[in-house]
Write a protein that binds this DNA or RNA. Structure first.
Lengths: 214, 214
DNA sequence: TAGATTGTTAATCGATTAACAATC
DNA sequence: TAGATTGTTAATCGATTAACAATC
């Protein structure tokens, strides 16, 4: 039986589908800038190296967006994807650990370009970090984490703290109500299963490449 | 019929297996520091959330490293994995585009910790970048790319240039003989298929998380 | 020897691709 | 209408997991 209400009964969508949706969304962004009005699943797939059936099936997870015999209206599909991905409103991000890597992430242009709002940075040595960074984003002492999050909601926490700190920081962030974590620290964290965690392990990427060049 | 020589007939290994191998290798590194002598596939898997059969099957792609009824000798398995991953020698890395993100990557401690050698950075404005970075790694003008690579071999090029530059930089790097690219720029590049390319798309990670918090 | 755990084959599961009726 | 392309079902492919004989 089909879901009777629009929101609550979302079926479980594979993570891989969500990633491809983001990719489609970007291509559509480019196409819109180029004033392209329509695109077929075959063309959209070709730009990313995907099969046309895969494009249609990914989209079919969320509804019917195309016109048989014609294709998809670029602007219409883009709107729909943005809404599906939750990008039709401001997504609020904080960064914890404004060291070497964190300094780059807090002012990373790619985040802003894709419409994320970097709210605050948190650091154990906030003065040094503030000097280093030169960005509009205010940097607070990590002790203020809970008090800042309280009140103003935060969607995603980006973690770039030392490995020794990661578990305790993750727990504090979760306790403060954050539901999604992007972790740049090469260590697994244990959080309740309703909290979404993604790992970006930079050295791991190099390692997997080094296999092919030996 | 089994391969008759040790090197040439490597069978095609899924990328996912190689990534897991790197993860195993790190766990073993930790265990060795803790003076743990042996580990079973079940314990190794548990640390990463993998099934024990998967651990054994991944390892089986490359040989028999375990002792039935006992498990794996930590130090022995680690040596084998390092050799498989090509980490039993210095892996030489260069970085192109020493801007905001590139500045962090060139001196990223995680790379050094995992035994990679960051050779040089290349930039269109090398003076500004050199001032910004404060690391031992010398930064050259991007015009010197070919002449520097010539002679001293480079295993992996990390790219963090502006999106408009990415395709031409990729082509130059490949022409200079580099066989593996780690691309932080959110744009697909076209290279000969023997060149290995991995994409790290930071905004994409946030996008896929934002789906879960809307 | 008895117990434990490997390496490997067979079964299961999920994701990708092909095919095609529906339809604009 | 004829042609093109969707949405969706069925077929294929590959990856994960279970099971177990081999063996330390």
């Amino acid at each position: 039986m089909p879901p009777t209400d629009g929101e609550a009964e979302r079926k479980i969508i594979p993570q891989a589908v969500i990633k491809r949706l983001s990719l489609y969304s970007r291509i559509l962004q480019d196409l819109e800038l180029e004033n392209v009005e329509k695109i077929s699943s075959a063309d959209l797939g070709r730009r990313l190296g995907f099969n046309s059936a895969q494009v249609r099936k990914d989209l079919a997870c969320f509804g019917q967006f195309g016109v048989p015999g014609f294709g998809y209206y670029v602007s219409d599909l883009r709107k729909n994807l943005r809404s599906i991905l939750g990008k039709d409103r401001t997504v609020r991000v904080i960064l914890i650990g404004v060291g070497n890597l964190g300094s780059a992430l807090i002012s990373y242009h790619g985040f802003t370009k894709q419409g994320f709002k970097m709210m605050w940075g948190f650091e154990a040595q906030p003065e040094a970090a503030t000097q280093r960074v030169r960005s509009e984003v205010p940097i607070y002492h990590v002790d203020e984490l809970e008090s800042k999050i309280q009140g103003e909601s935060v969607d995603i926490a980006v973690l770039a703290v030392p490995a020794t700190e990661i578990q305790s920081i993750a727990e504090r962030v979760v306790a403060a109500g954050v539901k999604a974590i992007l972790n740049f620290v090469p260590a697994r964290i244990e959080v309740p299963e309703e909290v979404q965690v993604r790992y970006v392990d930079l050295a791991l990427e190099l390692e997997s490449l080094s296999y092919y060049v030996r």
